[in-house]
Design a binder for these strands. Structure first.
Lengths: 263, 263
DNA sequence: CGTCTCGTTGACTGGGCTCAAACCGAGTGG
DNA sequence: CCACTCGGTTTGAGCCCAGTCAACGAGACG
């Protein structure tokens, strides 16, 4: 069951831009102590996640020249909101976000969670306005990628063009996987798929695949998976009883990965 | 309620390529009688739907040179299938398609329906392979847009680059709207949103917004909306009783648009 | 300490699924 | 012409999963 958005992580055509050293995500020290603005794509420790592999030194320098600024967002604050004019893409360097689309009647739905090394803002390209909110789940830092300049670079550098297109297409594929999850799976399967997907993404970025902290509440998870927070909680409890996972609040340890895949 | 994927049709950054004269979609005469291969983007009757508005004559000629071929697909046949190597995008010129993602265990989910003037194939960019199947719902014709050449053009023509990026982003936004539908709406709301969305898309292309034929079965609609065919049928019957619509099999007439919006 | 947010658990309800039967229209063939 | 099939659709009856409402517990914080 449920390999879709779970088992495999798709080829990671994630963001353009920089990201933190790998241990920063779970580091306890306050963000202000890390001098982020000095970093550049060319020296970024996880640039293999963000950039196409085949860039020349000259191309890297060119990139450094446009992606120079970063921004700190405190927990609960918005990186952008629905309706904001679209100017830049963002690469998560540290921390994590949720993206939310809202209805005028107050209904809202979480369309995704982004951890370090992933991209935000592609929804704004089509109408020059953002289509939803991006909210920090913890104190976070993003690289700012001015979109106009990125487009210019794509016209010059074929590999960057390819990379950006793959990023966009990857987003499309990711969403259609999620649609399948929402359209066809039971509550248990959704939660299992969610955990497996998160696990794979952490592994792909060098963190532990078996043990991690959820930065989002049960309600946010439910809102993402199309169910109520109580149901999410029940599923966690059930998986615990079945010895598939071990949870204490937001701490998760995956005990039986195969079992979880077969839910 | 439910404007998201229903009420408004987003700024139509639909496909690059040509499309049929407006009446062809519902025409009864066999497709073979229409000489599609002679048409070019520059003379296409609905190029305003497919192309950016600000192209010079020279640019149009350039386009004509790459988008020259079309392909006929018979009802039930596949334009491409999951796993096929990705080479081209497709613009629907006549007819309609569904896109389907399948699971190894046989579970399948319809991720979208495409009518004339809309695009297919963007899912393939990210991994050089198509991620799902595209199946013709009736005998159909598509324009073939070789992707490598499209990328080249995007590096030359800023307006085409913009257009392609908007198309991709539009797909992302459309899918996140659909996710909201799947994640938060009741069966009745989903069916209403589906009908309103279809209606708006027909109107945008010059067809009647109030009366149209569904080219897909109840089962396909259900698979798209995340519910069983019986439930779809029941909702149609309910809307009929409530004097919101008028149905005879696949023929639909929207009687009370506002009522449908308020479901 | 009280307050507040978040998480867990239980009891009850109901919307949508399952199973089943019948209907309808389009072909198809006698 | 009718009979027959067949895919798609409609409708009903019963059931179950997940939503709702509610109480309570745990931890963070002033």
């Amino acid at each position: 069951m449920l390999s879709v958005s779970a088992g495999e992580v798709r080829p990671s055509h994630a963001p353009i831009g920089m990201a933190f050293p790998l241990d920063a995500h779970h580091a306890a020290r306050p963000l202000e102590f890390v001098d982020v603005t000095k970093r550049a794509c060319s020296t970024c420790s996880i640039r293999s996640v963000c950039l196409p592999p085949d860039l020349t030194a000259a191309e890297l320098t060119r990139l450094d020249s446009i992606i120079c600024s970063s921004r700190h967002i405190r927990r609960g604050e918005a990186l952008f909101r629905s309706g904001d004019t679209f100017q830049s893409l963002y690469a998560v360097r540290a921390g994590s976000f949720k993206t939310v689309v809202m209805h005028r009647d107050g209904q809202e739905h979480v369309t995704g969670f982004q951890i370090s090394g992933e991209t935000l803002g592609l929804d704004g390209v089509c109408s020059d306005r953002h289509n939803g909110d991006a909210i920090a789940l913890e104190d976070s830092v993003v690289c700012i990628i001015p979109y106009a300049q990125l487009e210019a670079i794509c016209r010059e550098m074929r590999s960057m063009q390819r990379h950006v297109h793959r990023m966009m297409s990857g987003e499309i594929v990711r969403e259609s996987d999620l649609m399948m999850l929402l359209g066809t799976m039971t509550a248990g399967q959704r939660v299992a798929a969610f955990l497996l997907n998160l696990s794979a993404r952490f592994r792909a970025r060098g963190y532990s695949a078996a043990e991690f902290n959820l930065r989002m509440t049960r309600e946010e998870i439910g809102c993402y998976l199309g169910m109520k927070l109580e149901t999410v909680s029940r599923m966690f409890s059930k998986f615990q009883r079945d010895r598939l996972i071990d949870t204490h609040g937001k701490e998760i340890r995956i005990v039986d990965l195969e079992g979880l895949e077969q839910v």
